[in-house]
Design a binder for these strands. Sequence first.
DNA 1: TAAAAGTATACTAGTACTATAGACTTTATA
DNA 2: TATAAAGTCTATAGTACTAGTATACTTTTA
Lengths: 152, 152
Amino acid sequence: MRLSKRGEYGLRAMIALAEPAEKSDAPQMMQIKEISLREQISPKFLEQILLTLKNAGLLHSKMGVGGGYYLARSANEITLGQIFRVLDGPVAPIKCVSQMAYEPCGCPDEQTCGLRLAMSDVRNAIADILDNTSLADVTKRQSTVRKKLGIR
Amino acid sequence: MRLSKRGEYGLRAMIALAEPAEKSDAPQMMQIKEISLREQISPKFLEQILLTLKNAGLLHSKMGVGGGYYLARSANEITLGQIFRVLDGPVAPIKCVSQMAYEPCGCPDEQTCGLRLAMSDVRNAIADILDNTSLADVTKRQSTVRKKLGIR
DNA sequence: TAAAAGTATACTAGTACTATAGACTTTATA
DNA sequence: TATAAAGTCTATAGTACTAGTATACTTTTA
């Protein structure tokens, strides 16, 4: 049940972009280099990932000097589920329970397949979290934890 | 978030072995060939999978003529989580939230890493289902569905 | 017009996945 | 006691995927 590096890096980058800049509440524009440095990700690899996210409509970019990437929508309108699916594909552990990419899995009778029933529960549990957690939720939670620990 | 074929086949096989035989309530002994035929799995591949499950202590076997595989414990003492972990490894989507195979994931500060907090929720949701669903639960649910649909 | 920054593809080394093959061991039974 | 049925064990092969590099190109600003 693994999140790929692409997925991990993409999620980290999106969270970084969702963090409000110091003193300001506006989401920031950041450059590949900035993010790659801060999150310790190979800049060339990150480049690909951000491009994918951009082509999927989750990021916008500005080319040229002083350019960079920024969120296409506000942080509370982008969910972890959206990002995950772009980079890592369907959430479902097995195709026959996928909402976004259903395919029969070859069991004799799908309706009564016990594995399918159980995996369907798993899919729903994962999707429930990922689709109901926005980037804003994540950054909010981060700063709550920081405050509680007295950090920064 | 995918279940591998090994995991899928292994789970299917274990469920098949947990289904009580006709008229009897005792869990059955089945041969590789039987299971592979019934579940449409390459017998040689299934062989490996069952061996792994046996070496992990979830199955017992009888060699020689009239031999086969049978569950090492009763169906309500074997959970989907146990089977999953043997065949597909840790449940956690990212190593830094794994209970069974923790490893740092390289974020600057683990305590306040937003991705980690979210993925921890996901891990717990998956583990909660997998570790609290026994083979007996699965077969019970299967037969309930069958009854409701008036099948068999 | 030069440099900064994103865009787009192609490529590659390594690893994991999904099997397949073959030789070996154990057991029942004719 | 020989034979066949059945599990055991290890090696290997083809393919796909992963993670990352490389390179050439376009856009924008100063």
